[in-house]
Simulated assay, not measured.
Amino acid sequence: MKRFSQLAIPYIVWAAMMLVLPMALIALYSITEPGNSIISFSITLDHYVKFFTDQDFLIILWRSIWIAVKTTILCLLIGYPIAYFIARSSEKVQNILVLCVTIPMWINMLVRTYAWIGLLSEGGLVQRIASFLGFWGKELLYTEGAVLLGMVYNFLPFMILQINTALCKMDHSLLEASADLGANPVQTFRRVTLPLSLPGVINGITLVFLPAVSSFFIPKLLGGGQYFLIGNLIENQFITVGEWNFGSAISMIMAVIMMLLMMVVRKVEIRNQGGKEE
């Protein structure tokens, strides 16, 4: 046991340097104000007060949460049937379909998002198809719809893979038992398949919502700077404005929101499994 503890030391040091230390610095920046000299500063909560008392910042926060919710719902509605179809396929077909889902993830997300600019721009493939279907003249790029499309496209594989994993781990003899007891396919899905797949659904929701609510380059590229989210606000405070203290305060607010969400998800998962939190 002592030997294993010693082997964990490098990981603990790495985690402290790469995770704990940066978060501590952000927390320190969020509650301080620079003084006249380099080493002098004062403790203040003005940055948090500034955020929660400015209606524009609250609107941006609400807009970010709302589009993350819509992204999560769309990913769930699209991803669950796909994951269900993959899980019900033969093992050979499953491997091919999972590969098709994961192949786009091998390409950098920034590159994939850039590709949508060409597809959605004027004269692009998507606009040509829309024009053919009678939506001539409708602007596609630099809209909320384009941002939502980019988020769903980038985060959908996370939902599919999590749900598919849960469905594949399910004991298929339970489905046979349900059919033997007289349940039709709809009843079997509602009372057996869906409850047993909820852990995958919950994990998928977490993996989609958390990056969606803090995304900054997808709205920047597909929204053209006109659709401003909380991730863009943080980036703007650090890079453009140079207000590191205020940007750190916004980052801490988002970190708290995400941790609260993860706690809620954890409690829901424990309740679904019928267990007790340790």
Rank of each mutant, 00 (worst) to 15 (best):
N184H: 11
N184T: 09
K267A: 15
G200C: 12
C100D: 07
S37L: 13
F209N: 05
T72P: 01
Y48A: 02
I39E: 09
P199V: 07
I234H: 07
T71N: 07
I82R: 03
V93H: 11
N95K: 15
I26Q: 01
E139H: 13
L119M: 14
L141K: 03
Q55I: 14
I257D: 02
P10L: 11
G123I: 04
E277N: 13
N95Q: 15
E144Y: 10
V213D: 00
V265A: 09
G224S: 09
P211E: 04
A255D: 01
F41P: 00
M262G: 06
I39D: 10
T143D: 12
G124N: 02
I65T: 14
F132R: 05
A130T: 05
G224D: 04
I218W: 05
V213Y: 00
I38Y: 13
E235N: 14
L221W: 07
T32I: 02
Q55W: 15
F57R: 03
S90W: 12
M151P: 01
M105Q: 01
L260T: 12
I38N: 05
S131L: 02
M17Y: 13
V98N: 10
L229M: 15
F216V: 03
E91M: 13
L167N: 06
L21H: 05
V241M: 05
I163D: 01
R3S: 08
L233P: 00
T206D: 03
M262C: 13
L149F: 15
F51M: 07
G275V: 13
S251F: 03
L261R: 03
N108S: 11
D54Y: 13
K276H: 08
D54N: 15
V13H: 05
T44H: 08
E144I: 10
D54T: 15
I230Y: 02
F135L: 13
F155S: 04
Q94R: 14
L198G: 01
F4C: 03
V101E: 04
T193H: 11
L110Q: 11
L210R: 00
W66C: 05
P185S: 12
K267H: 09
T143W: 10
A130R: 08
Y227T: 05
L222C: 04
V49D: 08
V241F: 04
V13S: 06
R191I: 03
C75A: 14
S90Y: 12
I218E: 04
I129S: 00
Y48F: 15
